[in-house]
Write a protein that binds this DNA or RNA. Structure first.
Lengths: 186, 186
DNA sequence: GTCTATAATAGGATAGAC
DNA sequence: GTCTATCCTATTATAGAC
Protein backbone atom coordinates (compact mmCIF):
# COMPACT_ATOMS: atom_id res chain seq x y z
CA UNK A 1 0.00 0.00 0.00
CA UNK A 2 1.43 3.35 -1.01
CA UNK A 3 2.35 5.72 1.79
CA UNK A 4 0.23 8.84 2.10
CA UNK A 5 1.81 12.06 0.89
CA UNK A 6 1.08 13.65 4.21
CA UNK A 7 -0.15 12.08 7.45
CA UNK A 8 -3.86 12.05 8.10
CA UNK A 9 -3.45 14.41 11.03
CA UNK A 10 -1.80 16.92 8.74
CA UNK A 11 -4.69 16.63 6.30
CA UNK A 12 -7.16 17.26 9.11
CA UNK A 13 -5.14 20.26 10.32
CA UNK A 14 -5.14 21.86 6.89
CA UNK A 15 -8.82 21.24 6.34
CA UNK A 16 -9.41 22.82 9.74
CA UNK A 17 -7.58 25.95 8.64
CA UNK A 18 -9.70 26.25 5.51
CA UNK A 19 -12.96 25.81 7.42
CA UNK A 20 -11.99 28.34 10.07
CA UNK A 21 -10.99 30.91 7.46
CA UNK A 22 -13.80 30.42 4.99
CA UNK A 23 -16.68 28.84 6.89
CA UNK A 24 -18.61 25.75 5.85
CA UNK A 25 -19.97 27.06 2.57
CA UNK A 26 -16.79 28.92 1.66
CA UNK A 27 -14.68 25.83 2.27
CA UNK A 28 -14.95 24.55 -1.28
CA UNK A 29 -13.33 21.31 -2.40
CA UNK A 30 -11.10 23.35 -4.70
CA UNK A 31 -9.74 25.35 -1.77
CA UNK A 32 -9.36 22.27 0.38
CA UNK A 33 -7.59 20.39 -2.40
CA UNK A 34 -5.20 23.31 -2.87
CA UNK A 35 -4.56 23.58 0.87
CA UNK A 36 -3.83 19.88 1.29
CA UNK A 37 -2.06 19.29 -1.99
CA UNK A 38 -4.46 16.46 -2.71
CA UNK A 39 -6.78 16.07 -5.64
CA UNK A 40 -10.48 16.57 -4.98
CA UNK A 41 -11.17 12.88 -5.42
CA UNK A 42 -8.47 11.94 -2.91
CA UNK A 43 -10.28 13.88 -0.22
CA UNK A 44 -13.01 11.25 -0.34
CA UNK A 45 -10.49 8.67 0.80
CA UNK A 46 -10.10 10.60 4.07
CA UNK A 47 -13.67 11.85 4.28
CA UNK A 48 -16.01 9.40 2.53
CA UNK A 49 -19.03 11.48 3.45
CA UNK A 50 -17.73 14.62 1.79
CA UNK A 51 -17.92 18.04 3.36
CA UNK A 52 -20.34 17.12 6.10
CA UNK A 53 -17.97 14.34 7.06
CA UNK A 54 -15.09 16.82 7.14
CA UNK A 55 -16.95 19.17 9.43
CA UNK A 56 -17.81 16.32 11.78
CA UNK A 57 -14.18 15.22 11.95
CA UNK A 58 -13.22 18.82 12.70
CA UNK A 59 -15.84 18.94 15.44
CA UNK A 60 -14.42 15.67 16.82
CA UNK A 61 -11.01 17.31 16.88
CA UNK A 62 -12.40 20.40 18.56
CA UNK A 63 -14.19 18.36 21.21
CA UNK A 64 -10.97 16.46 21.86
CA UNK A 65 -9.01 19.70 22.02
CA UNK A 66 -11.45 21.09 24.56
CA UNK A 67 -11.19 17.97 26.68
CA UNK A 68 -7.38 18.12 26.62
CA UNK A 69 -6.77 21.87 26.89
CA UNK A 70 -9.80 23.14 28.76
CA UNK A 71 -11.57 20.44 30.75
CA UNK A 72 -8.40 18.70 31.90
CA UNK A 73 -6.49 21.80 33.07
CA UNK A 74 -9.64 23.13 34.72
CA UNK A 75 -10.08 19.86 36.61
CA UNK A 76 -6.62 19.98 38.18
CA UNK A 77 -5.62 20.55 41.78
CA UNK A 78 -3.84 23.87 41.37
CA UNK A 79 -5.58 27.00 42.69
CA UNK A 80 -8.55 27.96 40.47
CA UNK A 81 -6.83 31.13 39.33
CA UNK A 82 -3.88 29.14 37.99
CA UNK A 83 -6.08 26.59 36.28
CA UNK A 84 -7.96 29.36 34.51
CA UNK A 85 -4.70 31.01 33.51
CA UNK A 86 -3.75 27.68 31.96
CA UNK A 87 -6.95 27.53 29.95
CA UNK A 88 -6.51 31.10 28.76
CA UNK A 89 -2.98 30.41 27.60
CA UNK A 90 -4.19 27.48 25.54
CA UNK A 91 -7.04 29.48 24.05
CA UNK A 92 -4.69 32.32 23.17
CA UNK A 93 -2.56 29.84 21.27
CA UNK A 94 -5.55 28.18 19.57
CA UNK A 95 -6.84 31.50 18.31
CA UNK A 96 -3.36 32.78 17.52
CA UNK A 97 -3.75 35.92 19.60
CA UNK A 98 -7.04 36.72 17.90
CA UNK A 99 -5.86 36.31 14.32
CA UNK A 100 -7.55 32.97 13.80
CA UNK A 101 -11.29 32.40 13.81
CA UNK A 102 -13.13 29.88 15.96
CA UNK A 103 -14.52 26.81 14.20
CA UNK A 104 -17.55 26.81 16.47
CA UNK A 105 -18.30 30.43 15.69
CA UNK A 106 -17.99 29.98 11.94
CA UNK A 107 -20.21 26.90 11.98
CA UNK A 108 -22.76 28.59 14.26
CA UNK A 109 -23.29 31.34 11.70
CA UNK A 110 -25.15 30.79 8.46
CA UNK A 111 -26.69 27.73 6.93
CA UNK A 112 -24.30 25.22 8.48
CA UNK A 113 -25.76 25.99 11.91
CA UNK A 114 -28.73 23.70 11.40
CA UNK A 115 -26.52 20.83 10.24
CA UNK A 116 -24.38 20.88 13.37
CA UNK A 117 -26.63 22.38 16.01
CA UNK A 118 -26.49 19.46 18.42
CA UNK A 119 -22.72 19.14 18.26
CA UNK A 120 -22.09 22.87 18.62
CA UNK A 121 -24.36 22.93 21.61
CA UNK A 122 -22.55 19.99 23.20
CA UNK A 123 -19.09 21.49 22.79
CA UNK A 124 -20.10 24.94 23.97
CA UNK A 125 -21.81 23.35 26.96
CA UNK A 126 -18.75 21.34 27.87
CA UNK A 127 -16.63 24.48 27.75
CA UNK A 128 -19.08 26.50 29.82
CA UNK A 129 -19.67 23.64 32.24
CA UNK A 130 -15.99 23.05 32.95
CA UNK A 131 -15.43 26.73 33.54
CA UNK A 132 -18.47 27.03 35.80
CA UNK A 133 -17.31 24.13 37.96
CA UNK A 134 -13.96 25.79 38.48
CA UNK A 135 -15.59 29.08 39.37
CA UNK A 136 -17.72 27.29 41.94
CA UNK A 137 -14.59 25.84 43.49
CA UNK A 138 -13.32 29.41 43.63
CA UNK A 139 -16.26 30.32 45.79
CA UNK A 140 -19.01 31.47 43.45
CA UNK A 141 -22.48 30.13 43.95
CA UNK A 142 -23.85 27.85 41.24
CA UNK A 143 -25.83 30.47 39.43
CA UNK A 144 -23.14 33.15 39.42
CA UNK A 145 -20.56 30.63 38.26
CA UNK A 146 -22.78 29.49 35.44
CA UNK A 147 -23.56 33.03 34.32
CA UNK A 148 -19.98 34.15 34.50
CA UNK A 149 -18.89 31.12 32.49
CA UNK A 150 -21.48 31.81 29.79
CA UNK A 151 -20.50 35.44 29.68
CA UNK A 152 -16.84 34.56 29.41
CA UNK A 153 -17.31 32.26 26.44
CA UNK A 154 -19.50 34.89 24.78
CA UNK A 155 -16.84 37.56 25.31
CA UNK A 156 -14.17 35.36 23.76
CA UNK A 157 -16.32 34.51 20.75
CA UNK A 158 -17.32 38.14 20.35
CA UNK A 159 -13.76 39.40 20.57
CA UNK A 160 -12.86 36.97 17.78
CA UNK A 161 -15.73 38.21 15.61
CA UNK A 162 -14.62 41.76 16.22
CA UNK A 163 -11.05 40.86 15.36
CA UNK A 164 -12.21 39.38 12.07
CA UNK A 165 -14.56 42.22 11.26
CA UNK A 166 -12.29 45.07 12.24
CA UNK A 167 -8.86 43.60 11.67
CA UNK A 168 -7.87 44.50 15.22
CA UNK A 169 -6.84 41.83 17.68
CA UNK A 170 -6.22 44.24 20.57
CA UNK A 171 -9.61 43.66 22.25
CA UNK A 172 -9.06 39.91 22.16
CA UNK A 173 -5.60 40.14 23.64
CA UNK A 174 -6.77 42.56 26.28
CA UNK A 175 -9.63 40.23 27.16
CA UNK A 176 -7.33 37.28 27.69
CA UNK A 177 -5.21 39.39 30.03
CA UNK A 178 -8.18 40.74 31.92
CA UNK A 179 -9.79 37.37 32.42
CA UNK A 180 -6.61 36.00 33.97
CA UNK A 181 -6.79 38.76 36.56
CA UNK A 182 -10.50 39.22 37.10
CA UNK A 183 -12.34 35.99 36.38
CA UNK A 184 -11.70 34.59 39.82
CA UNK A 185 -12.78 36.95 42.58
CA UNK A 186 -10.18 37.77 45.21
CA UNK B 1 -45.30 51.28 -15.61
CA UNK B 2 -46.56 48.27 -13.63
CA UNK B 3 -46.66 48.67 -9.89
CA UNK B 4 -44.20 46.49 -7.96
CA UNK B 5 -45.68 43.49 -6.16
CA UNK B 6 -44.12 44.64 -2.94
CA UNK B 7 -42.38 47.92 -2.09
CA UNK B 8 -38.63 48.10 -2.46
CA UNK B 9 -38.20 48.52 1.28
CA UNK B 10 -40.05 45.27 1.81
CA UNK B 11 -37.75 43.54 -0.67
CA UNK B 12 -34.72 44.85 1.17
CA UNK B 13 -36.15 43.72 4.51
CA UNK B 14 -36.74 40.20 3.27
CA UNK B 15 -33.31 39.96 1.68
CA UNK B 16 -31.89 41.15 4.99
CA UNK B 17 -33.61 38.31 6.81
CA UNK B 18 -32.17 35.74 4.42
CA UNK B 19 -28.64 37.12 4.74
CA UNK B 20 -28.80 37.25 8.51
CA UNK B 21 -30.09 33.68 8.73
CA UNK B 22 -27.92 32.07 6.10
CA UNK B 23 -24.85 34.28 5.66
CA UNK B 24 -23.49 35.59 2.39
CA UNK B 25 -22.74 32.25 0.78
CA UNK B 26 -25.84 30.57 2.15
CA UNK B 27 -28.05 33.36 0.85
CA UNK B 28 -28.63 31.76 -2.54
CA UNK B 29 -30.70 33.41 -5.22
CA UNK B 30 -33.18 30.57 -4.90
CA UNK B 31 -33.71 31.29 -1.21
CA UNK B 32 -33.92 35.01 -1.80
CA UNK B 33 -36.37 34.55 -4.64
CA UNK B 34 -38.52 32.35 -2.44
CA UNK B 35 -38.37 34.82 0.47
CA UNK B 36 -39.32 37.80 -1.67
CA UNK B 37 -41.79 36.06 -3.95
CA UNK B 38 -39.84 37.37 -6.94
CA UNK B 39 -38.19 35.39 -9.69
CA UNK B 40 -34.42 35.24 -9.71
CA UNK B 41 -34.21 37.51 -12.71
CA UNK B 42 -36.43 40.12 -11.06
CA UNK B 43 -33.93 40.49 -8.26
CA UNK B 44 -31.54 42.07 -10.75
CA UNK B 45 -34.01 44.89 -11.21
CA UNK B 46 -33.53 45.84 -7.56
CA UNK B 47 -29.89 44.80 -7.31
CA UNK B 48 -28.20 45.15 -10.72
CA UNK B 49 -24.88 44.07 -9.26
CA UNK B 50 -26.20 40.77 -7.97
CA UNK B 51 -25.38 39.39 -4.55
CA UNK B 52 -22.53 41.76 -3.82
CA UNK B 53 -24.89 44.61 -4.57
CA UNK B 54 -27.45 43.15 -2.18
CA UNK B 55 -24.94 42.90 0.62
CA UNK B 56 -23.87 46.50 0.06
CA UNK B 57 -27.47 47.70 0.19
CA UNK B 58 -27.91 45.75 3.42
CA UNK B 59 -24.77 47.35 4.81
CA UNK B 60 -26.16 50.76 3.80
CA UNK B 61 -29.32 49.93 5.71
CA UNK B 62 -27.31 48.78 8.71
CA UNK B 63 -25.19 51.93 8.73
CA UNK B 64 -28.36 54.02 8.54
CA UNK B 65 -29.94 52.00 11.32
CA UNK B 66 -26.88 52.56 13.50
CA UNK B 67 -26.97 56.28 12.82
CA UNK B 68 -30.66 56.46 13.72
CA UNK B 69 -30.86 54.05 16.62
CA UNK B 70 -27.39 54.19 18.13
CA UNK B 71 -25.48 57.33 17.25
CA UNK B 72 -28.47 59.64 17.50
CA UNK B 73 -29.80 58.44 20.88
CA UNK B 74 -26.26 58.36 22.25
CA UNK B 75 -25.73 61.96 21.15
CA UNK B 76 -28.73 63.29 23.06
CA UNK B 77 -28.86 65.48 26.12
CA UNK B 78 -30.38 63.02 28.55
CA UNK B 79 -28.13 61.56 31.25
CA UNK B 80 -25.64 59.07 29.74
CA UNK B 81 -27.27 56.17 31.56
CA UNK B 82 -30.60 56.90 29.90
CA UNK B 83 -29.06 57.32 26.48
CA UNK B 84 -27.37 53.95 26.81
CA UNK B 85 -30.61 52.39 27.98
CA UNK B 86 -32.17 53.75 24.79
CA UNK B 87 -29.50 52.17 22.61
CA UNK B 88 -29.87 48.84 24.41
CA UNK B 89 -33.62 48.82 23.90
CA UNK B 90 -33.15 49.35 20.18
CA UNK B 91 -30.51 46.63 19.96
CA UNK B 92 -32.74 44.23 21.84
CA UNK B 93 -35.44 44.86 19.26
CA UNK B 94 -33.05 44.58 16.30
CA UNK B 95 -31.78 41.23 17.47
CA UNK B 96 -35.22 40.07 18.59
CA UNK B 97 -34.13 39.27 22.11
CA UNK B 98 -31.20 37.23 20.81
CA UNK B 99 -33.15 35.11 18.33
CA UNK B 100 -31.92 36.98 15.26
CA UNK B 101 -28.34 37.05 14.07
CA UNK B 102 -26.31 40.19 13.38
CA UNK B 103 -25.61 41.00 9.73
CA UNK B 104 -22.18 42.33 10.64
CA UNK B 105 -21.30 39.15 12.47
CA UNK B 106 -22.44 36.88 9.66
CA UNK B 107 -20.54 38.90 7.06
CA UNK B 108 -17.43 39.05 9.25
CA UNK B 109 -17.20 35.27 9.28
CA UNK B 110 -16.11 33.23 6.30
CA UNK B 111 -15.22 34.21 2.79
CA UNK B 112 -17.45 37.28 2.62
CA UNK B 113 -15.23 39.00 5.19
CA UNK B 114 -12.66 40.01 2.60
CA UNK B 115 -15.31 41.44 0.28
CA UNK B 116 -16.73 43.77 2.93
CA UNK B 117 -13.84 44.34 5.28
CA UNK B 118 -13.73 48.10 4.92
CA UNK B 119 -17.45 48.57 5.40
CA UNK B 120 -17.65 46.21 8.38
CA UNK B 121 -14.78 48.06 9.97
CA UNK B 122 -16.48 51.43 9.39
CA UNK B 123 -19.79 50.37 10.91
CA UNK B 124 -18.24 48.64 13.89
CA UNK B 125 -16.09 51.71 14.44
CA UNK B 126 -19.05 54.06 14.34
CA UNK B 127 -20.85 51.93 16.90
CA UNK B 128 -17.83 51.72 19.19
CA UNK B 129 -16.99 55.39 18.72
CA UNK B 130 -20.48 56.63 19.59
CA UNK B 131 -20.56 54.48 22.69
CA UNK B 132 -17.08 55.57 23.77
CA UNK B 133 -18.01 59.25 23.47
CA UNK B 134 -21.01 58.73 25.72
CA UNK B 135 -18.93 56.85 28.26
CA UNK B 136 -16.46 59.74 28.30
CA UNK B 137 -19.31 62.12 29.02
CA UNK B 138 -20.19 59.81 31.87
CA UNK B 139 -16.77 60.42 33.34
CA UNK B 140 -14.50 57.72 31.97
CA UNK B 141 -11.12 58.70 30.61
CA UNK B 142 -10.59 58.31 26.86
CA UNK B 143 -8.83 55.00 27.03
CA UNK B 144 -11.18 53.33 29.50
CA UNK B 145 -14.17 54.55 27.51
CA UNK B 146 -12.75 53.17 24.31
CA UNK B 147 -11.90 49.81 25.84
CA UNK B 148 -15.24 49.49 27.53
CA UNK B 149 -17.02 50.32 24.27
CA UNK B 150 -15.03 47.71 22.35
CA UNK B 151 -15.66 45.15 25.03
CA UNK B 152 -19.37 45.92 25.04
CA UNK B 153 -19.76 45.42 21.29
CA UNK B 154 -17.77 42.20 21.53
CA UNK B 155 -20.00 40.93 24.33
CA UNK B 156 -23.12 41.63 22.30
CA UNK B 157 -21.76 39.94 19.19
CA UNK B 158 -20.54 37.00 21.24
CA UNK B 159 -23.84 36.58 23.03
CA UNK B 160 -25.55 36.43 19.64
CA UNK B 161 -23.11 33.79 18.39
CA UNK B 162 -23.73 31.78 21.52
CA UNK B 163 -27.48 32.15 21.08
CA UNK B 164 -27.20 30.79 17.54
CA UNK B 165 -24.81 27.99 18.48
CA UNK B 166 -26.57 26.85 21.64
CA UNK B 167 -30.15 27.83 20.95
CA UNK B 168 -30.27 29.73 24.23
CA UNK B 169 -30.98 33.46 24.27
CA UNK B 170 -30.74 33.82 28.05
CA UNK B 171 -27.13 35.09 28.06
CA UNK B 172 -28.01 37.75 25.50
CA UNK B 173 -31.06 38.95 27.41
CA UNK B 174 -29.13 38.97 30.67
CA UNK B 175 -26.36 40.96 29.02
CA UNK B 176 -28.75 43.64 27.82
CA UNK B 177 -30.12 43.98 31.34
CA UNK B 178 -26.68 44.07 32.94
CA UNK B 179 -25.33 46.64 30.56
CA UNK B 180 -28.20 49.01 31.37
CA UNK B 181 -27.20 48.83 35.01
CA UNK B 182 -23.45 48.55 34.90
CA UNK B 183 -22.12 50.16 31.75
CA UNK B 184 -22.11 53.62 33.24
CA UNK B 185 -20.24 53.77 36.55
CA UNK B 186 -22.14 55.25 39.47
C1' DG C 1 -3.62 6.34 -1.67
C1' DT C 2 -3.85 9.16 -5.52
C1' DC C 3 -5.10 10.28 -9.90
C1' DT C 4 -7.90 11.65 -14.46
C1' DA C 5 -12.16 11.86 -16.22
C1' DT C 6 -16.73 12.67 -15.78
C1' DA C 7 -21.05 13.04 -14.29
C1' DA C 8 -24.96 15.62 -12.02
C1' DT C 9 -26.46 19.49 -9.91
C1' DA C 10 -26.82 24.11 -8.23
C1' DG C 11 -25.44 28.75 -8.38
C1' DG C 12 -25.00 33.40 -10.36
C1' DA C 13 -26.10 36.01 -14.03
C1' DT C 14 -28.09 37.70 -18.74
C1' DA C 15 -31.42 38.25 -22.91
C1' DG C 16 -35.43 39.47 -24.37
C1' DA C 17 -40.63 39.01 -24.34
C1' DC C 18 -44.57 41.03 -22.13
C1' DG D 1 -41.41 45.32 -13.06
C1' DT D 2 -41.70 40.62 -13.81
C1' DC D 3 -41.29 36.68 -16.28
C1' DT D 4 -39.38 32.34 -19.04
C1' DA D 5 -35.61 30.57 -21.01
C1' DT D 6 -30.96 30.08 -21.21
C1' DC D 7 -25.94 30.31 -20.40
C1' DC D 8 -21.77 29.67 -18.04
C1' DT D 9 -19.34 28.36 -14.35
C1' DA D 10 -18.37 26.28 -9.96
C1' DT D 11 -19.39 22.71 -6.91
C1' DT D 12 -20.04 18.20 -5.01
C1' DA D 13 -19.51 13.73 -5.88
C1' DT D 14 -18.46 9.15 -8.29
C1' DA D 15 -16.09 5.62 -11.41
C1' DG D 16 -12.36 3.33 -12.39
C1' DA D 17 -7.28 3.21 -13.75
C1' DC D 18 -2.77 2.96 -11.58
Amino acid sequence: MPAPLIPKQEVVDRVMTVFRQHGFEGATLSRIAAATGLGKASLYHYFPGGKEDMANVLLDATAAWMELHVTKPLSGTAPPRERIAGMLKELDALYDGGDAACLLGTLAVGTSRSLFKKRLQAIFDEWIGALARTLMEAGLDRRSARERAEDTVARIEGALILAQGRGDTAPFRRLIRQLADELVPD
